[in-house]
Design a protein around this nucleic acid. Structure first.
Lengths: 141, 141
DNA sequence: AACGAATTGTTGGTAGTACGAACTAGATTA
DNA sequence: TAATCTAGTTCGTACTACCAACAATTCGTT
């Protein structure tokens, strides 16, 4: 009842989430980062982002984000750069070292999760992202 | 590339995980619990569990678990009961109040995630748990 | 039975996470 | 200009999670 057969839909999602979280934590630890720090770095791969937007992307209060950025900045992985358009605001950007780490981590996580997919039929493998996309249309972004 | 269309397999899993985490956090907050506390309570629905086994189920160090159980015990939701077979060990069990909360939370989370599934075709809805079960055979339990 | 090893759970210390309320400085609108 | 809103920080609190060290108990050998 607990294993492969009688897994309900909700339970399946929860289990899958745990699997992802575990890989994420694992890779983060390899790079001596916390999962939250890794997530922040990955969020910046596309380019600098302001604090307010980051807090929305990460679903964090701004005050929580301040501390997270502080700690990652202290390690020299990101920098706060002034926003020329608004003197209150700042943009968070990856340093060269941070870029390296962000790419490595992102790549490793992607590699691992893709590896997990290998047991599936080609059909299932193609279908799952589509299904997820449908789910996300409701609650997520 | 970021949105619905070109979602890679790994990215899909990560997004789905976020969705689950969010629902979990949301429901926990409604009941004035942390996600970790909710998870602990749900883990005990099936009956009392010892600390060592719990730490494996939750992937936590025993020392981390001690604190988690302490806090939930302080709220009167669980109790440590002696294990007659081993005088070192204890079993963690839900109090009546904890049972109520555990069932409520578990039900609410299940209800929400099942609701999310409603956009899917019957076929996809049936298939996903099977696919997840296949994925879990590798890394998970 | 007794000794050493392994196991169960706790304590204490450290770092990180996350929130809310209060705040400063700069932008926006009336 | 005054009133208001927004961007980000600070502060205080509670929780999470790890590691190393520990006491009590059980297990395995001899």
């Amino acid at each position: 009842m607990t294993t492969t057969t009688g897994l309900g839909f909700a339970a399946a999602l929860v289990r899958m989430s745990h699997l992802v979280q575990r890989e994420f934590a694992d890779v983060s630890r390899q790079h001596d980062l916390t999962p939250q720090q890794t997530q922040l770095l990955c969020m910046l791969i596309g380019g600098p982002v302001g604090m307010t937007e980051l807090s929305k992307l990460l679903h964090l209060e701004k005050s929580s984000l301040t501390g997270l950025v502080d700690r990652v900045e202290r390690r020299g992985l990101v920098a706060r750069v002034a926003d020329p358009r608004d003197r209150r605001a700042c943009q968070i950007e990856l340093t060269p070292q941070g870029t390296q780490l962000a790419n490595d981590s992102h790549g490793e996580i992607t590699r691992r999760l893709d590896a997990v997919a290998e047991v599936l039929s080609q059909d299932d493998r193609d279908r799952l992202p589509v299904v997820v996309a449908q789910l996300l249309t409701q609650r997520d972004l």
